[in-house]
Design a protein around this nucleic acid. Structure first.
Length: 562
RNA sequence: GCGCCUGUAGCUCAGUUGGAUAGAGCAACGGACUUCUAAUCCGUAGGUCGCAGGUUCGAAUCCUGCCAGGCGUACCA
């Protein structure tokens, strides 16, 4: 909470108490005081609804209570201009314009840490995101998950959590086998074999490229046709490993160019190799949480609120993904994470009750498990849908998008919506350098201020530090407005962390940018008066710092020049 | 059928966790560059918050029931 808000709260509390002591208010049972910032300026800088809440307790009409409170308000620091009663009984507080100035000092002092907090109290928290199967390149949908996951991680870190980012690699199971089969068939084609390429194999061109890479790899030792001499099973396994490794390193590259770096890449196969999957299945069998029916092993997810029980080992002896997921999520808690976040595509939402069940069965409460469901991304070009079908292999990859519109624009656009609503991503729009495209609108503020600072330095103005006389010159309504907006930043960040909603920061930055651009157009920073210039530089540098900090949380750069 | 998400200005979306007269951008119209970056700004216009009830001082927000769209509902991943 902002310092200012806390001050107002204290004033209200003390005033209520004084009113009770004097007998104006009959009850000392005060509800929690809520102070908010009204959206319309005519309702003051802060406002409280306390008298409406108190009405039933005090058995008095709200406006009477408001009167009693206002009469007892004390303002030793002189921050108030006036107070008033409005509407059904709101008490509105109008602050003296000078009372906002200390916010600027705080921004300069805390610098890159302005807006940070310790609400996380160092709690170990893990966020797992992207986790795309290494069977093909990342596409735009994965990009949205990456942008959201990475940004949430940044925000939580900024708020005092001990955050680890993880990518779960599905490097085992059927789809990896299919990958190997797809590559091997294309490989055979390279040697003139006439193959009927099955529909359930991966269709994309990248499979052909991989088969060529397999051949090239082998060519160092022999004619490149070595795989044809192996058993089919051996060859497929070889291709599978080769291809998965290759694709995974491409995925890693793509993510890095998108500014996303993981702390750990966790292999699904390792859960089998270390025996963790077997162990958890055995444990749960003993506890009768897993039972046998019709030759398959079932998890009693229904007992934990799921709509039906789920298979963990099929009657053919193969485990389902759910089996390794149980072990994986148990392992997350075993590693000491107090809270885990999974970022999934919304089409996986049916999976939540299953994993929740597994977590509860492992002895953890389900409130420690959070899922962020990312809704669909519709890729458009000039308003027309771009074909995207993984089946035919015709999809626009994240790599394509980044190279076309840039990482900054892509990340920002992914974060301009709440992740719970579907997003239209228009490639042409993302490249536009107008107000249609808010990325540049925000970055432009940073570049403009950088330019002003450069000019100031050229004219010999040295370090900009707090100076009472200079700061007191900041009286223009647009200046006070800017400071007020800046004072809200820490609360925005906190809110964004609590709800795991990066878009709140995106919107905040747009409104700060808007206020700055207005100010810039109306007033000059570099004036003939040294003192005024100094004060205004102090102001705009504060804006610059917040823009930089906020963009950093979104994973977007803050350019000095544009 | 059941479950999850969505429904706010012509379009794309916010909405401080229940507050006062519901806000931005785009598109439309009219203005502002000899001055720190016009990738900007200022102004006008635009609304039955899907519909109907309910909860209370007060509802876009909470509860119920409908309507519409998307997704999911495998011994698939």
């Amino acid at each position: 909470m902002s310092k200012m808000k806390q001050k107002i709260k204290n004033m209200i509390y003390n005033a209520s108490k004084d009113a009770y002591d004097k007998g104006t208010l009959p009850s000392s049972d005060f509800p929690e005081i809520e102070v908010e910032e009204p959206k319309t300026g005519s309702h003051g800088d802060f406002s409280t609804n306390i008298s409406m809440i108190m009405a039933s307790i005090q058995k008095m009409p709200p406006r009477k209570i408001a009167e009693a409170i206002i009469k007892n308000i004390k303002d030793p620091d002189g921050i108030l201009d006036k107070t008033e009663i409005a509407g059904p009984g709101f008490v509105n507080f109008f602050l003296n314009k000078y009372s906002w100035h200390p916010v600027l000092r705080k921004i300069h002092d805390q610098d890159a840490l302005y807006g940070s907090s310790n609400i996380g109290e160092g709690k170990k928290i893990q966020i797992e995101f992207v986790s795309a199967n290494p069977t093909g390149p990342l596409h735009v949908g994965h990009g949205r998950g990456a942008a959201v996951g990475d940004s949430v991680a940044n925000i939580l870190l900024f708020c005092g959590y001990n955050v680890k980012k993880e990518y779960y690699v599905n490097d085992s199971g059927r789809q990896i086998n299919t990958l190997g089969r797809s590559v091997f068939l294309r490989y055979k084609e390279l040697f003139g074999a006439d193959v009927q390429f099955p529909e359930d194999c991966y269709q994309g061109d990248y499979i052909r490229n991989l088969s060529k890479k397999v051949r090239a790899e082998k060519v160092r030792n022999d004619n490149g046709d070595k795989l044809l001499l192996m058993s089919e099973e051996e060859a497929i396994t070889y291709c599978a490993h080769f291809a998965a490794k290759n694709i995974l390193s491409e995925i890693k590259e793509d993510l890095e160019s998108f500014g996303v770096v993981f702390d750990r890449w966790y292999s699904e196969q390792s859960l089998f190799d270390s025996g963790k999957v077997d162990r958890v299945i055995n444990d749960f069998r003993k506890q009768n949480i897993i039972f046998e029916d019709n030759g398959a092993l079932w998890f009693r997810t229904k007992d934990f609120g799921d709509e039906k029980n789920r298979v963990v080992v099929r009657s053919n002896g193969l485990t389902t993904y759910f089996a390794s997921d149980i072990a994986y999520h148990q392992d997350k808690f075993d590693r000491g994470f107090e809270k885990i976040i999974d970022v999934w595509g919304a089409d996986h939402h049916g999976y939540i009750p299953r994993i929740s069940a597994a977590i509860e069965a492992s002895g953890h409460t389900r409130d420690k498990f959070n899922v962020i469901l990312i809704q669909l991304v519709n890729l458009l070009r000039n308003g027309e849908p771009v074909a995207m079908s993984t089946r035919s292999g015709e999809f626009v990859t994240l790599r394509d998008v980044i190279s076309e519109v840039g990482s900054d624009a892509a990340r920002f656009i992914f974060l301009t919506r709440h992740y719970e609503s579907a997003l239209d991503f228009d490639l042409e729009l993302a490249k536009k350098k107008t107000n249609d495209n808010p990325v540049y609108y925000v970055q432009y503020v940073h570049a403009r201020i950088s330019s002003i600072v450069r000019k100031a330095q050229e004219s010999g103005i040295g370090d900009i530090t707090w100076n009472d006389a200079a700061i007191s010159r900041l009286n223009e309504p647009e200046e006070v407005q800017l400071i007020k907006i800046m004072s809200r930043y820490p609360e925005i960040v906190r809110c964004s962390a609590e709800n795991m909603e990066p878009h709140r920061i995106t919107y905040y930055l747009m409104s700060l940018a808007s206020a700055f651009h207005s100010y810039y157009n109306k007033h000059r920073v570099l004036t003939d008066e040294a003192e005024l210039t100094f004060g205004r530089l102090y102001l705009v540098i504060a804006v610059k710092k917040i823009i930089r900090n906020g963009l950093a949380l979104l994973g977007v750069s803050a350019p000095e020049k544009m």
